[in-house]
Design a protein around this nucleic acid. Sequence first.
DNA 1: GCATCTAAGTGCATGACGCATCTAAGTGGA
DNA 2: TCCACTTAGATGCGTCATGCACTTAGATGC
Lengths: 141, 141
Amino acid sequence: MTHLSGHGKGCCSPAEGECFPPGGARVRGFVHSWLLLQLAQGPAHGYELLERLGDEDAPDPGFLYRALRALEEEGLVRSTWDTAGAGPARRVYAITDLGLDYLKAWSVHLRRTRDRLNRFLDEYAALTEGKGGERRERAPR
Amino acid sequence: MTHLSGHGKGCCSPAEGECFPPGGARVRGFVHSWLLLQLAQGPAHGYELLERLGDEDAPDPGFLYRALRALEEEGLVRSTWDTAGAGPARRVYAITDLGLDYLKAWSVHLRRTRDRLNRFLDEYAALTEGKGGERRERAPR
DNA sequence: GCATCTAAGTGCATGACGCATCTAAGTGGA
DNA sequence: TCCACTTAGATGCGTCATGCACTTAGATGC
């Protein structure tokens, strides 16, 4: 079955909204791009990035750290240990030239995805407006 | 590893664009919503829906048929066999009231996702514009 | 009878992600 | 000095969404 039934926690009749796949309609690979975008604006360490998003959008910490390692393996970011400052050492990431290229390429995909979403939403709006509460041709009761 | 390395076929240095996860930045569960949207505009059978998208956006046929069955299991669509007309029998799907509710709920998620993408793209645009070919603070060579 | 088109479907693999859990260095207080 | 707490990073494991390859089967034309 799909996410249609597999709600991890709580909720869920379509009418109530909020349920579906955890976190709503996520874009595949978005976290990676988002990380690159953040790092393109300056170096940072994982925990910091994690807190930059509120509790809302924040990805799973485990996933975030893994993503950073993956990016590094691909040569899209580079890391160094920062032992200065309080607390345990932090692994500080910075984006590479390759990472910038990648970010650029991804932004193209994301724009395309955005456009597709817009088309969907327009089509849906066209469907619902102009016929108020009215329902249309569909299977008979 | 992530899609960053797992390119099924061909390609792939960031510079060339086009590669990454097959089909670019897909939205989780989008196919299901798209099917509901199409069916909200009138009944149709799988093969027909498949062709409504060009070769470009079309999902894998196997996945599409499975998605339709899943939607039916959830009671979001309903199907009947159409044996009239040429060729083999077609399973014609129609959306249900529950499906319409679900579509509505999903459209909310999709709007949110669209907005998130817009924020990303704006941020990226802000980053690249205003400093032409110029690069910014990042790891030293 | 055989190729071809339409239509639907199955089997299997994998990637992206979520959740639970763990280590370990600092820090502050009793 | 021992302990609880915070910061920071990481691993194990499961699962869902999806992709790819392949199969079935009725119609139709030759």
